[in-house]
Computed example of a mutant assay.
Amino acid sequence: MAGPPLFVVFNLASGRGDREEVRREIESACAAQGRQADLLSVDAPNRLMETAREAVRRAKAASGIVVAAGGDGTLSAVAQATLGSGCPYGVLPRGTFNYFSRTHGISADIREAMKTLLEESPQPVQVGLVNGRAFLVNASVGLYPQLLEDRESWKQRIGRSRLVALGAGIATLLKGHRSLRLRFDAPDAPDAPQELRTPTLFVGNNALQMEQVGLPESRAIDRGRLAGVALKPVGRWALLGLLLRGALGRLGEADALVDFSFKRLTVRARRFGTRRVKVATDGEIVWMQLPLTFEVSPEPLMLVRPRGLAPERAAQQAQRDDAPLAETERSLP
């Protein structure tokens, strides 16, 4: 008996690789198993949410699966439309970093990703919200959104790669920055600061990303919380040092970090007259009204994924868990 049909939101403007090859692989994999696949192509960014909602509408009517094919922004937008609909959600990752898919054991290879979609079952995964907008990997205010804007500009001119992303980050930090004066209200996080001057606030929902740059509080995400990280005010050269630490996976060793975990956090600006701020959610930049409320979504996203911990995630966790033992061994005579 054939399984549920797939309704694929295929963003032609995002991700990388041969679009026609992706289309052929989707169609041939589904045909081999007698499964229906409807591809809803998106050729302009302003049509992404409209197309995602249409995919959800069709999936609900046919008891099907909503699938996002594209980069992080596409995955996040389609997740936003799918959350709360009762429809399963699948991904065909085509981005540069693919933290969400890697965390959940979904391959960037289109054939392997299709195999997962057609053979595995939906499992609940945590989603973060900022003022009701879903994010799968992270959300941020301050310097980090500017880093993302500049990185995207570099990618459009030079190409997509991790080296380009690093170069764009260095250039942004050298331009200087302005700190934000923020007030925090997090009833379930006694270690959170009440007030802080910071160049950026970063809220993580992806333990793999945080572990790879050495950020603290990655364990909190595994316990159903979000991880908050803010920087103390520092100069541009110190910021460059933090960027280097992140590239080496040692950011958590920096004294300039303030970190805490929470289920719900309200952020207000101390400066009078500040009503809107620029917010980055999974690489997409939007303006939002203050105050900002970051929280764990009360309902999970039902992601089609392999069971168990993804191999890369398991390796990172094992390395993290072995770290105290390694430090002890190094200190022995």
Rank of each mutant, 00 (worst) to 15 (best):
G3A: 07
P4I: 05
F7K: 01
F10R: 05
E20K: 09
V22P: 01
A29C: 11
Q33P: 00
V42C: 14
D43C: 04
N46W: 14
A55Y: 03
A62L: 01
V67T: 06
L75T: 11
G90S: 12
F97M: 15
N98M: 12
Y99M: 09
Y99H: 15
R102S: 10
E112C: 05
K115E: 14
T116I: 09
Q123S: 12
Q126K: 07
Q126V: 03
V137L: 11
V137T: 14
S140K: 04
S140V: 04
L147T: 05
E149V: 11
K155M: 15
K155W: 09
A165P: 08
L180Y: 10
L182D: 05
A189Y: 03
D191V: 06
Q194I: 02
R197P: 01
P199E: 09
T200Q: 14
G204V: 05
N205K: 06
G214S: 10
E217G: 08
S218K: 03
S218Y: 14
S218M: 07
D222G: 15
G228K: 07
A230R: 07
G241T: 00
G252T: 10
A256M: 06
V258D: 01
F262R: 01
F262D: 02
L265S: 09
A269F: 02
A269S: 13
R271P: 00
R276P: 00
V279S: 01
M288H: 06
P291W: 08
F294D: 02
V296I: 05
P300S: 03
L301H: 10
R305D: 03
L309V: 12
P311T: 00
A314E: 14
Q319H: 12
R320Y: 08
D321G: 00
E329S: 05
